[in-house]
Structures are given as C-alpha cells and as structure tokens.
Design a binder for these strands. Structure first.
Lengths: 162, 162
DNA sequence: CAGAATAGTTGCGTTTGTCCACTAAAAGTA
DNA sequence: TACTTTTAGTGGACAAACGCAACTATTCTG
C-alpha cells in the first residue's frame, strides 16, 4: 500500500454540488459574479465601472430618448430611490441629462449626452463581445435557445407577458 | 385625430432592451435579483436568509463532511476572508462546526450539525422547487439543455475543465 | 535550511441597496 | 368641484456584504 497523499479530503475538482447541480439559482448566482467581475475589467476606467445598472440605463436612455427613470427602475428591478441615485451619478459623469416631463409634473425625461452616446457605442461592443466570449464552445443554436429561455423567464418575472 | 393619450413616452411593455436583448449579462443579472428575492421569501425565517452563499455552504458541508472552507470559497467565487465570516455566521446559528484538520495545521474541516442537517433537507426541497417553478412552461428538454450550458460555463469559469 | 506557497484571521474602507417618510402632481370618484 | 388614492421622485438612516491588504502559522519545494 502506497503512502497516503496529503491534501484536502474533498478537492475542488471532485466536489459535487448536491442538489444545486441541477438548480437554476446556483449557476445564475455564480455566473453572475463571474460575469460582473469580467465586465468590470473590460470597462476599465470607462466612467461606467461597476455595472450595477449603469450599463442598462445608458443603453436605454440612448435608444429611447425621453425614457423615464421609473420605467428603467422596473426593468432593472430596483426601487425608485436607488434609480434616482443612479441617475445622479450618471449626470455627474455627464452621460445623461434630466429634465421635467412637459406633460406630467411628477415625471422626468432622460436624454443622452454626446459623451453618453459615445460611451454607449463602446459599451454595446463590449457587452456583445463578452456574451460571445462566455458562450465560446457553445453551439450557436444552443446560445439562441438559452437566450430565448432566459428572455422568457425575465419577461414573466416582470409580469410583462399575460 | 383623437386626443393624445397621456402616459410615458416609452412604457415598460414596449421598451426594447437594445443590445442587451441578446446578451447574457443582462438576463443573468436581473434574473439573479429576482431569483434571490424569491429565494429569500421562500426561506423566510429559516436561519439561512439572504442566500449569499449560506445555502451552498450548508449543502456542501452536509454532503461532504470535512470539506474545507477554502474549497467552498473557490466554488462560490469568494475570497477566504468572506468565507471565514460566512462560516462564523453559520456556527453562530449552530448549523456547522469547525475543527482543525488533523493532518494539516493550516486547514480546517467543516462538519454539519443536527440542526444543519435538518435545514439542509428543507433547503434542498425549496431550491429544487424554486428552480422548477421558474422553469414553468419551459419544456423539460430545454431545461436540461439550459442547465447543461450553464454548468459548462460555470466549470470553465472555475478552470475546472481542461 | 531558505524561500515560496497555502489556509485562515482581522481591520478597513467602500459600495450597495432597502426601508421609510415626505412632497408634489395626477387620476379616479362621487 | 372636492375627496381620496396612486404615481414619480427625493433624502436620510441603516445594515450587510465584499474585496483588499497585512499578518501569522504551516507546509511544500529544491
């Protein structure tokens, strides 16, 4: 009998994930962490670091001029106060502007700035690139299907469908 | 011409997500939020609220007696200090025990307590149920495929494969 | 044996988000 | 018109979580 090798009783490579192996939440959570870190790296110094919703806000304001903070808040699952602070930040960075809605005294309309539009272009590239990088090795068809399922889950979560 | 209807220029139902529509990160992030909140609700008062990794830790310790904190840390993508504090909490709640590894003076081994094992049973049910609830309407085969892809992405992220 | 790597702990700082209360405006209702 | 309810946004307080960096103690490498 050979001498016992040292090392942990349960090395990383061999640890099963128990029930989580077949569960959405675990993968979503961990992949989310990985994805966020990776995105932060790619956004290095781009005024939009730490993508807590800034990216979505930026792109939405860019492609939907006049969109309201509360609408974005719903889409990214945050409350209005968090959204407000997010917009504050982006205004500080001169990425968007905020003005009162002409037809509704309660509401505001967001518009992109030049600097914001520039950034939006870069961010689109980066986000798309990241997605395909993470999908490397996954057949095109499966990617489509995956996004499709996620999209459905997302929309149902928001109560957008039926 | 009928009078103009009031309301936001870009109501939630009609807002396109720009590039993010076809991007992993957006869905992962938002679904993660939804999933976490939902899970918290389901774990109501179960000593394991706010599932920041407690769930994974609990299940792993239960199914891999003697597993080391650092191994779990790798699996859930956290650093050792965060992991240590997590274990502290769980010990406070009497879910796991920590002892020094007999064969390695640097390491520790985690073991489940009775209370922890009970909780693990409940958590397994809940996590599984949640997953299938979120998958409602998605064909069995697609579910499998999705989990398969996520599993692959996860393992690659950890550098476990190849 | 010396130097490098690993496991864990602790303090620090930062970020983030949630809850709650409050104002203002609009919509609904009678 | 007068009332009540709902919606949009703001601001403060509070708590939790995480990462980094520094430090100790072991163990591994050569």
């Amino acid at each position: 009998m050979p001498a016992k090798k040292k090392g942990p009783p349960h090395p990383v490579e061999t640890v099963g994930l128990d029930v989580l192996e077949d569960t959405l939440s675990f993968y979503i959570r961990t992949i989310n962490i990985a994805l966020s870190r990776d995105l932060d790296d790619r956004l290095e110094g781009l005024d939009v670091a730490r993508g807590t919703g800034k990216i979505t806000t930026l792109l939405l304001v860019d492609s939907h001029p006049g969109i309201r903070p509360s609408v974005i808040a719903q889409l990214i699952l945050r409350d209005r106060s968090a959204m407000g602070r997010l917009v504050d930040q982006m205004i500080d960075h001169d990425l968007v502007t905020r003005r009162n809605a002409p037809d509704d005294g309660r509401a505001q309309e967001l518009h992109i700035t030049e600097k914001g539009a520039d950034l939006a272009r870069k961010v689109r590239e980066i986000a798309t690139k990241q997605s395909s990088d993470f999908f490397a090795g996954v057949p095109e068809e499966d990617q489509k299907r995956l996004l499709d399922i996620l999209r459905r889950v997302y929309r149902r979560t928001l109560g957008l469908d039926q």
